[in-house]
Amino acid sequence: MTPSIFHNAVVTGACGGLGQALARELIGAGARVALVGLQRPALDALAALAPERCAVYQPDVSDTTALQAMAADWMERFGVPDLVIANAGVAGGFDTAQASDLAVMRRMLEINLLGVATSFQPFLEAMRASGQRGALVGVASLAGWRGMPGNGAYCASKAGLIAYLQSLRAELRPTAITVHTISPGYMRTVLTAGNRFAMPGLMEADEAARRLLAGVAAGNEHIVLPRRIGWLSRTLNLLPARLHDRILLGQPRKPRAGEPGSTDIPGLK
C-alpha cells in the first residue's frame, strides 16, 4: 500500500476502475475518505474497509446543490479535505450527423467537465482558508490532447478539462493548494471493455492509482499514465495532420450509446 501524505480525501467516481483503486489505496494508508458515486453496493463495500473513516454519497456530480450538500456534510463530520480527486467520468462514441448524439455530448460535458468544477467548488474556500497544503486532482485523458474520429464528445470534454485545470492552477499559485492534471491512456475498466481497437500500454487500475497518488504527493502537476504512452502520443502528434487522421481513421470507432459494447451514461435523456 502506498504511504500517503494525505489524511482527508474526497474521491468521485469511486464505484469502480480507477476511482475504486484510488479509494482502496487511500483507505489502506489510513486516510478518511468520502466515497462519491452512483452504485451503492460498490461504495458500501469500500466503506466497510474502514467504516469509522468513510462516508458514502450518491450525488450527480453535475448537480451543484447536491455536491454542496455532500461537501457540507463531509466537512462537518470529518473536517476539511487535503485531497479532492475529481475522477467521475463517462465515455462513448459520437456522430455529429446523429441528432440523438447531441444529448450524449451535452451529458458528457456535464459530467466530465462541469462535474470537475462542481466537485472542487464546495471545498475550495475551506481548503484555502485552512492555510494547509492541499491538492485538487482532475482526471483528464490523453484523448484531450487531440481529437479522434468518432470520439468528438469525449475528446472535447477532456480537452476542455485540461484547459480548465490550467486556469485553476494559475489562479491558485499564490496559495498552498496545488492543481494536478492526470492524463491516463488506456486502463482496464468498464469504460474500455467495449473498445474494438488496439489499446497500447493498457494499465491495471491498481497500478495507475499507486502511480497517480505518488505523483501528486511528489508535487507533479502533469501526470501521464503510463508515461511511455504519452511519448507515443506526442510523437504521433508531430505527424502531418492528414497522415495522423488517416492512421486514426483506420481504427474501429468507439461504440455509440446503445450500440453493442457501449457503456452506460447516467442521466442521458
Rank of each mutant, 00 (worst) to 15 (best):
G185S: 01
L236N: 00
G219T: 06
L26I: 08
H222T: 14
A29Y: 10
K158S: 12
I177D: 05
H222M: 10
I229M: 11
S183P: 02
L168V: 09
G160D: 12
T189Y: 14
G92H: 10
A45Q: 14
I162P: 05
G147I: 05
A156F: 12
A214K: 09
G79H: 06
N220C: 02
L225V: 13
D44Q: 09
V61H: 09
L248S: 00
Y57T: 10
G250M: 04
A9N: 03
G160A: 04
I182G: 11
R234G: 04
L212P: 09
R227K: 06
R242P: 02
R24C: 05
N195P: 01
Y57N: 07
F120G: 02
L232S: 10
S100I: 02
M1W: 15
F6Y: 15
S141M: 07
V139Y: 07
T181W: 01
A129P: 00
G230E: 08
M1I: 13
Q20R: 14
E171Y: 01
V56Y: 15
S130N: 00
Y164G: 03
E207N: 01
E204C: 02
A45K: 12
A47I: 14
L202S: 04
L161T: 03
L238F: 06
S4T: 15
L142S: 05
A29H: 10
I5K: 15
L46H: 10
G115P: 11
R246D: 05
A198G: 01
G138R: 05
I247M: 00
D101L: 01
R24I: 03
R32G: 08
F197H: 13
L236H: 04
L249R: 09
A9C: 13
L142T: 01
R40F: 02
N87K: 07
T64R: 14
P240K: 07
N112Q: 02
P266W: 04
L161I: 06
V36E: 06
A71T: 09
R133A: 15
E171K: 07
P41C: 06
L191V: 03
E25D: 07
V116S: 01
M75D: 05
G261L: 01
L191A: 11
A140P: 02
G17M: 08
A48M: 08
R253K: 10
G79N: 12
N195C: 06
M105F: 14
R242E: 12
M199G: 04
A209M: 13
A55P: 05
E204S: 08
G131I: 01
R146F: 03
Y164Q: 12
L114W: 04
P59K: 01
A126R: 15
I27T: 02
V11C: 11
P59H: 12
L124P: 06
L46C: 13
S262G: 07
T2N: 14
